[in-house]
């Protein structure tokens, strides 16, 4: 299936919003998507990656290096001439049951056995550099792979010390996880690493569901025509992201809003500093997407459930969902 145009996705506004924010500010630290199967989680993430403008990479570099950062690539020999080419934003689908070798990269067996050379064969992390790393059913992923991912996601660098190899290469990507909480809980440490989380539900509205069937059918019959029909809309999204990216450094966050953020985190009992940081970055990105120069409470309120709902400490006695708890706190604090 070719990629589906991002703007042609029916509904799922919260998910789309979160993905846009991650596209504007990659430092937000990934998006966790909770929801049933077949609700368009991977379609949306894939669509966004395909919509983004191509990036410049060094031709032949297996680490997706940007021309100006070629020094960091293990493939680069100083003094070597490089040629920059356009490439689509990478989107890597990490399958359940991936081995450490495939994720991190490993000794290139072919070269080793054939030529007797020690050579590094990059893994999925190198492929995802500067793009998206999508993990379906992340709650079922092996713990040791999750640990590796967390480490790399936090440091932005993949350090391989195995098989007699010693290699480091940059690996910065937007981590997108998806899973169904009914099939196993995620470890809190892992959840906390995600900047935003969204809950997707299947569209309840019959008209929406009919619209989805129509659009999927059109896409299936004439993918190119369908993409062309939505190219304008996708172009608008693209422009919005580009504008927001440019405006982001200039968006101001008033002192009073920062205080609001701190008191909100305290009120809901979100552990750690990461909640506040994400609130700040998320609200800023949101303001930038809205074309505003200053963060307001409106942005804060909108971002709060996405930034905090996965960070609340489990309370066995309180059966209320996290989203409700955050909304209650917002209501109490800011009316």
């Amino acid at each position: 299936m070719g990629s589906f145009p991002f703007s042609a996705i029916v509904g799922q506004d919260e998910m789309k919003q979160a993905l846009l924010i991650a596209a504007v500010d990659a430092r937000i630290g990934g998006v966790m998507i909770f929801g049933d199967r077949g609700t368009g989680k991977s379609t949306a993430a894939r669509a966004l990656a395909a919509t983004l403008p191509p990036i410049m990479v060094v031709e032949g570099c297996r680490f997706n290096s940007a021309p100006e950062q070629i020094d960091a690539s293990p493939d680069y020999v100083p003094g070597q001439k490089i040629k920059a080419v356009k490439a689509p934003v990478p989107f890597v689908d990490l399958p359940l049951g991936s081995t450490e070798d495939r994720v991190l990269g490993t000794l290139d067996l072919e070269r080793a056995l054939g030529a007797g050379e020690k050579h590094f064969e990059p893994g999925l992390l190198a492929k995802a550099h500067r793009g998206f790393l999508y993990i379906d059913e992340i709650n079922l992923l092996e713990d040791h792979v999750v640990d590796l991912l967390l480490d790399v996601a936090a440091s932005g660098e993949n350090l391989v010390e195995r098989d007699g190899l010693s290699i480091r290469h940059p690996a910065r990507f937007v981590l997108i996880g998806s899973g169904n909480p009914e099939e196993g809980e995620l470890r809190p440490q892992l959840l906390d690493r995600f900047g935003l989380s969204v809950e997707v539900r299947t569209p309840e509205d019959i008209a929406d569901r009919v619209e989805i069937m129509k659009r999927c059918d059109e896409n299936e019959r004439d993918g190119r025509g369908f993409a062309a029909a939505w190219a304008d809309e996708d172009g608008k999204v693209l422009k919005r992201i580009a504008k927001a990216k440019a405006a982001l450094p200039k968006v101001e966050t008033p002192e009073s809003i920062l205080e609001d953020m701190a008191s909100l985190c305290k009120a809901v009992g979100a552990d750690g500093l990461r909640g506040e940081l994400t609130l700040m970055r998320g609200s800023r990105a949101l303001a930038a997407l809205d074309g505003k120069k200053q963060v307001t409470r409106k942005h804060l309120k909108k971002i709060a459930p996405l930034a905090l709902r996965h960070r609340l400490r489990r309370n066995i006695l309180d059966e209320t969902g996290s989203t409700t708890r955050i909304e209650r706190a917002l209501e109490e604090l800011f009316g």
């Binding site: 077949g38 309840e204 019959i206 569901r209 009919v210 989805i212 069937m213």
Partner: peptide, 19 residues
């Protein structure tokens, strides 16, 4: 619409099923 209504009555959440 009939497909969508029937799927809802059967408790089918996935959009893939509709397609």
């Amino acid at each position: 619409q009939s497909i969508a209504v029937t799927a809802a009555a059967l408790g089918i959440a996935s959009v893939r099923a509709l397609n």
